Amino acid sequence: MTIAPPAPHDTRATAADPVDVLGSSAHEQVIFCRDEATGLRAIIAIHDTTLGPALGGTRFYPYGSEREALADVLRLSEGMTSKAAAAGLELGGGKAVIIGDPATLKTPDLMRAYGRFVDSLSGRYFTAADVGTTAGDLDHVGESTEYVVGSNRGSGDSGFSTAYGVFCSMRAAAEHLWGAAGLAGRHVGVEGVGKVGSHLVELLLDAGAQVTVADPSATSIDRLRQAHPGVAVRSSVLDADVDVYAPCALGATLTPATVPQLKAALVCGAANNQLLDSSVATLLRERGITWVPDFVANAGGLIQVASEIWEHTPEQVRARIAAIGTTVRDILDRAQTIGELPGDVADTIVQERVDAAPARDRRDA
C-alpha cells in the first residue's frame, strides 16, 4: 500500500489521520495527489485487482477535510469491487475523489493534472464520471491519459445505463414480491432526479407505475416537470405512502432513525452505500421491507463504461445490463429459501467470484 502524507495546507488533517481512517482496510494502494498550479487535491484508492484492473468514477466534492475525503474514497472503492464482481465483470474496485467545490475549482487544467496522476498508475486504475464530474470533464482527463472511460470520445454519459439497470432490478424485485404485474400500478418514490433519477422516472412511467419525486435542486425539479407534468413532487419521498422507495442521490439515507418512517415494501435505487451500516439491513427485514443491494442494482453504468475496454457493442451492453434483473431475482429467491439477508447473499456471490479468480500479478493489473 502506497500512502503519501496529507496536503500540508490542510491544517485540519494530521499525519496520523490517514492511518486512523485506513485502520484494517484491505486496500491495495492509496494515492494522495496534489498539483500546486491548478489547486488539485485528490485521492485515488485501489481496493482490489484480483479480477482485473480497478475501475471507478471520480467524485468532485467539497469535503470538510482530507480525512473525510479519505474515508469516502475507501468506502466507495470497496463498493466498486463488489459491484464489478456481482456484475460478472473482469474488473477490480477503485475510486477517486477530488476535494473542492466543482462550481468554483474545476477547470480543464485541473482535470488534465488529475489525468496525469491517473496515467502514472499505468492502467491499474481506469477512471470514469461520478458526482461532480461529467463526460466533458473526462474529455480533459483523457488529454493526459488513455485510462479513462465514459467521456464524449467514448461511450458518453452513463446515466441512462445506470437507470436502466436499476429499473431492471426494481422490476425483478417487484415481480418477486407482487407477481407478474411487477411495477404496473405500483407507486414509486424517486429521491433525486438528476442524470440517473430522471431517466428512471421515464422508464417507470412507461412501465405503468405512478411516480412521486423529491430533489433539493429546483432546476432538476423544473426540468422534470417540463418533461413529465403529471409527476407529483414532495420535499421527501422517504416517508411517502409509496410501494417502492428509490434512493438515487447521495447515500446513507437508510438509518436506524429513518427506517421506521418508511412505508414502502421495497427499496431499490441508484445511490451508493444506501445503508448507514450493516445493522440497517436487519432493521429493514424486521419491518418486512425488501432491500435490493445497491451495488447490484446500480451496476449498469459500470457495465457501459467497462464495455469500452473490451469494445462491446451497444446490443451486448444492453443485454448485460438487463441481466442484472436475473441476478436480483436469484439473490432474492436464494435469500428467501435459506433465510438470509439479500445483502449477505450478494456478498457471498461476490466472494465466490473473487475466490474463483485465477492468480494474477496485481502489479500489472
Results as ranks from 00 to 15, higher is better:
A42R: 06
G197V: 01
A264Y: 07
V317S: 08
T127D: 04
L89I: 01
N152L: 12
D277V: 08
G301W: 09
A249V: 03
A257Q: 15
A365L: 01
I303V: 12
N273A: 05
R12F: 08
G300M: 09
T14E: 08
A96R: 11
E311S: 14
I43F: 01
D35P: 09
R353L: 09
A96C: 13
R287Q: 10
S217Y: 11
D222Q: 12
T253E: 12
A54L: 02
T81H: 00
L250P: 08
D333N: 13
A84L: 11
P293S: 09
C268I: 07
Q210R: 15
L183C: 08
A181D: 12
I331F: 08
Q274T: 10
T104V: 15
L105K: 11
S217V: 12
L183W: 07
T134Q: 00
A214Y: 00
A257N: 12
A103L: 10
G115I: 07
K106F: 11
T255G: 03
H187A: 09
D137R: 06
K83G: 00
I289V: 15
E78Y: 10
S217F: 10
L302K: 06
E315A: 15
G179Q: 04
P108W: 00
D333A: 13
D333I: 03
A7C: 15
H312D: 14
R186Y: 10
G150K: 00
Y61H: 14
R59C: 04
T282F: 13
S220M: 15
I289P: 01
G301N: 02
W178Q: 04
P293H: 13
D119S: 09
G88K: 00
L341P: 01
G194Q: 00
E175R: 15
T326Q: 10
M111K: 05
S151Q: 06
A365E: 03
E352H: 05
G123A: 00
G189F: 00
L177K: 09
K195C: 11
L22E: 05
D347R: 13
V242K: 02
